[in-house]
Amino acid sequence: MAKLRNAAERRPLRQRALVWIEQHCAAAADACGRLCGAPLASALTVAVIGIALTLPATLAVIVENTRLAARGFDAALDVSVYLKGGLPEAESRRLASRVAGRADVQTTRYVSPDEGLQEFRQWSGLGATLDVLGGNPLPGAIIVRPRATASDPAAIDRLVADLRGLSAVDQVQFDGLWVRRYSSVIDAIARVAQILGGLLAGAVLLIVGNTVRLDVAAHRNEIEILKRLGASDRFVRRPFLYGGVTYGLLGGLVSTLLVELLVVAGGGPVGRAAAAYGSLYKVAAPSGPLVLLLLGGGPLLGWLGAYATTTRQLRKIEPGGGN
């Protein structure tokens, strides 16, 4: 049978759009009215959602800050390639250029034997002893900065192995093991934050779902009347969806404020600890994407929780009496 068209579907598109906006405004106002009608219950729901979102958000801020602090460790990933003694400088420079052309290499810096000796003289404090040697025992070297970060140790291992295989190379030295370990710990915390985020997102769905379920039950009589008058499930569902979105949005706001408060509260002691080690490091506020995730993810979870619950509940409310 052909689809039955209701009165609204027979109206011009512009008028239908206007009615659509009117109905959404009415549904949003209705949802706000319901939330304000039970302020304590609504506040508790929002607080629970806010706290649930705060835990993974705080971990995410810790990860962001630890990664920021680790930015200065890039040099620790440099690979020192010592060339065979007696290799002509021109050939050494050509080799440095060839290595720099590799896709997995960010930059190279050639250090001639003379430059190497000068650097060694500066930081070792053995200048007088070196003079006794009479000549320069140091080979030329290439300092290679890999494109890969510490989170991709296999790529760095491949690069080191390739460099070792070059005929002009005598020795390859990589001291970035501790950076790798540090990075692994950050990655582990990030993974925990992701898992917690997923679990607590599920919890938010359940919290919103349960709140909306109670709300639907409280308005059962009204819903039944609306259905008798020809209201579609979509029409009946709308105010509950706005309710879910509002819970999620307010929960996201609470969470953002709590995380900001934690950063302010924890920033002082961390900054003082860093200063004790001669660092100017300061705890960074939650990044823009994280704030957007909280303010966008909260309403999305609220909508999903409300949608799933109302869809299931409305199927159970039929005005026929269920005979």
Binding site: N6, A7, A8, E22, Q23, A26, L229, G230
Partner: peptide, 10 residues
């Protein structure tokens, strides 16, 4: 109610 449900302009 029936008019609102049927999408009648305000």
């Amino acid at each position: 109610l029936p008019l609102i449900v049927a999408g009648t302009p305000r």
